[in-house]
Nucleic acid binder design. Sequence first.
RNA 1: GCUCCCUUCGUCUAGUGGCCCAGGACACCGCCCUCUCAAGGCGGGAACACGAGUUCGAACCUCGUAGGGAGCGCCA
Length: 467
Amino acid sequence: MTVRTRFAPSPTGYLHIGGARTALYCWLESRHRGGEFILRIEDTDRERSTDAAVQAILDGMRWLDLGHDEGPYYQTLRMERYRQVAEDLVRAGKAYYAYETKEELEAMRSQQMAANVKPRYNGAYRDRAEPLRDDPNRVIRFKNPTAGSVVFNDKVKGRIEWSNEELDDLVIFRSDGFPTYNFAVVVDDIDMKITDVIRGDDHVNNTPRQINIYNALGAAAPAFAHLPMILGPDGQKLSKRHGAVSVMQYRDDGFLPHAVLNYLVRLGWSHGDQEIFSRREMIDLFDVADVNVSAARFDVEKLSWLNQQYLKNDDPAELVPHFLWHLDAAGYDVASGPAPADVIVALRDRARTLKEMAEKAAVWYGPIREWDDAAVAKHLKSATAVPALKAVHARLAAVAEWNVENVHKAIEAAAAAIGEGMGKVAQPLRVAMTGTQVSPSIDHTVFLAGQSRAVARVEEALKRIGE
RNA sequence: GCUCCCUUCGUCUAGUGGCCCAGGACACCGCCCUCUCAAGGCGGGAACACGAGUUCGAACCUCGUAGGGAGCGCCA
């Protein structure tokens, strides 16, 4: 049987980091086992579902490059199917119509809460064989078994047993003609031949009742794997305040999609001491059964470190499109400056994100906007600054082929000419190039400026000193 | 309240009865390298929630306690 997993978000917001990890694990499990990955949009909550959210989820999946083999299916397009299955269940005596008002149910609940018992529907209509009648409160409830227990072997949590006495007759079909979540998922997962349900562990509580529905429908239950949740840095549930932001926010913040994936795959799963995983390795090594049972905190520091690992080790050419996105976002005139790939090489040891890299690249895509007074005072006003700059000016102007090596030689020669070490030339030059005393290695810093701009900036600096 | 789940360095984790007075990674600190800042190299501090039990032997098995989380909807 072909392994089929599915990611089934409800479109009530963007794709957040937790959803992204669930999607990743579903995707990996299907890829690892040579199966298929299905995307399903659970949009039966008409109040909260929006088209914009559907689009946001699709965008997030595309950015992460988690392609699906089927779908997206939309539950709202399957309404007839749910109705039909629910009515079949009533006809088979496995479900029944009930007519309580929401107020009556609410009263029942609060009474039970007050009596310190778990609130459950009392099954008033269960055996009444109430005829079908028009009523604004008419719902269909599932006849949950009253005895025995449901046992399932969760692939991450292990064996879980649930007494049927804890369960009540849940509504499977609402009075407004929409199916409820617990019913629609089961119908969908059966129809879509899902073999492995991988989802957040906030669903373990739903699993026993869903298994009962599978049984009533005469279908075999799939394998279940419930993923622990991702917590914020403070150990609290992820909220908008600290990280439950859209995965697209991570793009905006300068992270590479693969770094995010790598971070996510290691959050709750591991393969020995390995930290870096290529897509291929993830697919080959991942097994949902190896996922950890407990919740993990989200740590941007480690994500940043991983991101820099990719910045440092990936082929710069492959990073260019991502970097261009940030250069554009920063509003630079890219054509006026150095080749982005060269900038990446110069900055990849110094930036953890593409955004940071773009910020540091500003001096090569436009004029120096700000002069650091301390830098000027220390390195431009020093005794050796003027001779150093003059010496390097002549040699830079004379470079025949403008590349990092030749720039380096020119600077070395200038230092030798005035009988000083590299530092005495590099620091004033650095300030002349950037207005600051911090930048990549001096040869790259000068090279990236381009020959005419580099020479002009040395002249500008000399003028600034008053020479 | 009830039911279910969870608990190894600050964080992510390795560990499935002896290889563990617990290993790796991020972060932190120190040293080295050095044209600045990084990156890199080397080194350091830092954890088995607690208590019983089983066993020759327990981070690993059992029970209890404490702490944390989730669910208990005509939301998903």
